[in-house]
Amino acid sequence: MQPGMMKRLVPWLFVGPAVLSVIIFLYGPMIASLVLSVLDWNLLSPEIGFAGADHYEAVLARRDFRQAAWNTVLYCVILIPAQIILPLIFALMIHGLRGSRMAVIYRSALFLPTIVAYSVAGVAWSWLLNPVNGLFNEVLSAFGWPRSRWHTDPDLAILAVSMVTFWKSFGLNMLLWLAALATVPQSLIEAARLDGAGRLRMFFDLTLPLISPTAFFIAVTTLFSVLDDIVGVVDVLTGGGPAGSSTNLLYYLWQQGLGYFQFGQASAVAMMMIAAVLLVTWAQFALVERKVHYE
């Protein structure tokens, strides 16, 4: 083989497998969803029918779809800020005690739920939150406060699922923040402190810019990972109920597609989600590319 050819080929030997597998397993399904969304077909239909925009129209007209879409927005509004800011606060607290043996214990304890399987977490929480005799209500009533229906109350189900989802998955972001805080040079902080800067000032003027790449990274990944995390919690805790009040678009898609085998409608939902994901991802990168520089 000619050296020039070889030279051009080598980088692709390194990146080729990753690029190919991403295209096949992640972009491929997007295109497949597009195709499925205009067909009338489930795995067992003897023939494949063409549905055009029917599935989109049918989905958009459905009450449960609109409910799931609205819930998705609510979940994002509640969970995205929580999943970004609270882990940062926890990390700052632990970071403030670095060097102490207890810091390691706090870090481990707070990370613990992240490694608990959804099915196990679901059982534990349904006992704790059981409206009839769960511990949460027992404690509330011991203090003379009103008991609550938690995840079985249509008005509270989203909050209950959000709480469990947060509990289940804030650990990773906390670790990422901790890791970033560890890179901030102590000398800079000391100098600023000697200059008389307040804690908040120091954080916003000094620390935050230094950890901005991590901040960007967390912002990008959290945006959609929360949706995935919710699906696991919804599946084990509420099944989307009561009466669809805790479902979201991903869980709705899962139910329509793999519970009811409505591949067409489920794929139509998937396409709308994919469009939203791509749009938001593109916006994030476009926005941040100017601000954070990785090279």
Partner: peptide
């Protein structure tokens, strides 16, 4: 009656809460 899921109902009944 506090409507809950079947599993939670069974658990509450077994625990003497229901």
């Amino acid at each position: 009656w506090l409507p809950v899921s079947g599993k939670e109902q069974d658990a509450a009944f077994e625990a003497g809460a229901l």
